[in-house]
């Protein structure tokens, strides 16, 4: 196991696994597993944003939901820094996967979530007040007239007006709804927010507004974000560090500029060359990948990426590459990372 990192890490996920069983036949017996998240390790520092990127279905969302215990983890550990259970009052790393339901509920004050779909993530039968106050009510902090003041100040903080408090979600635009979701996520003053593609359902102008708001909130409340997205320019804009996922595994994780400029994994390179540039004269030299994304229920042997990798050698199809720290704070899972000279953005 890797040494415990000392530098103000708030969430440290090690070897996270989440397999969904495939059932078939008359008796619904388990005939296989979809390895949605397979041995994933990453960490988030206090007050920083870790972007988690990858294609649709690569397990980004599953990873964040499993850490949050919305799904039962198949394996691994997730250490979260909290003082809630320490006798001395000093923050210590607590393994979320070893907590019971009541203890986990305490942790849920410190970690909250923002969801992708601004329509479905707000209950249409509840007013904005009920929605934003709900986390406080759940944790027994939502009684009395001061709740309304708290909700109003949260709404104002995310750029909504106090009179919106009695309205219903269907009266708002997509961007406004996402702001309501943000206000709800902030209501318990969390330290870490899991943002599950928070802007991908919004149009581009609203995306920028929402991202800027999220950055303001981050510095005001000293928040850490785990920012799940598939839009590379969005991730580059908001993230301090970026982790690239491919078929349930993390291919590469590094500081944002480092990753974008000096990718070490061929998959990252292919992604980076796909980022569109706002320059009509720019001649794209895209690395076009061959074939399809590997099937997570039946992944290829060795490196999952090798059937599509133009640098692949024999070892790639035989041995699974180790996820290692090649440079300080730059992790990669590729046998040939040292030899290759890959292009960035």
């Amino acid at each position: 196991m890797v040494e415990q990192r000392s530098d103000n890490i708030i969430l440290d996920v090690r070897g996270l696994k989440k397999y969904f069983p495939i059932r078939s036949g008359f008796f619904r017996q388990v005939t296989g597993h979809v390895k949605a998240v397979d041995d994933v390790s990453f960490y988030v520092r206090e007050g920083e944003t870790l972007g988690l990127v990858g294609e649709s279905g690569c397990g980004k969302t599953t990873a964040s939901r499993t850490v949050m215990r919305l799904y039962d983890p198949t394996g691994g550990d997730a250490f979260f820094k909290t003082e809630k259970f320490s006798a001395s009052g000093e923050p210590e790393m607590v393994n979320l996967f070893e907590l019971d339901k009541e203890q986990m509920k305490v942790i849920r004050r410190d970690i909250s979530m923002i969801f992708q779909d601004p329509v479905n993530s707000l209950n249409p039968r509840m007013s904005v007040f009920d929605i934003v106050a709900e986390p406080m009510v759940i944790h027994g902090m939502g009684a009395g007239p001061e709740t309304e003041e708290t909700v109003i100040s949260l709404l104002e903080r995310v750029g909504l007006r106090p009179e919106h408090i009695r309205r219903y979600p269907h009266e708002f635009s997509g961007g406004q709804r996402q702001r309501i979701g943000l206000a709800r996520a902030l209501s318990l003053h969390p330290k870490l927010i899991f943002c599950d593609e928070p802007v991908s359902a919004l149009d581009v102008s609203i995306q920028a507004q929402t991202l800027n708001l999220m950055q303001d909130l981050q510095s005001d409340f000293d928040l850490a974000y785990l920012f799940v997205a598939h839009d590379l320019s969005v991730v580059q804009h908001i993230s301090d560090r970026v982790a690239v996922m491919y078929v349930g595994k993390i291919a590469e994780m590094a500081e944002s500029n480092e990753l974008y400029n000096n990718p070490l994994h061929p998959y990252t390179e292919a992604l980076m060359t796909a980022v569109p540039k706002p320059d009509p004269k720019y001649q794209s030299e895209r690395v076009i990948m061959q074939g399809d994304v590997a099937d997570p229920s039946n992944p290829p042997p060795g490196c999952y990426f090798h059937p599509r990798c133009k640098y692949a050698k024999d070892i790639c199809s035989q041995q699974e590459p180790e996820f290692r720290e090649l440079r300080p704070d730059h992790f990669v899972a590729c046998h040939r990372a040292e030899e290759l000279d890959l292009r960035g953005v």
Binding site: L70, S112, F115, N120, S121, I138, G181, R184
Partner: peptide, 17 residues
Amino acid sequence: EQEYVLAATSFGASDSR
């Protein structure tokens, strides 16, 4: 399966809630 149910769960809402 709606996300608002997931959201409530993520804030620690009880089954009955």
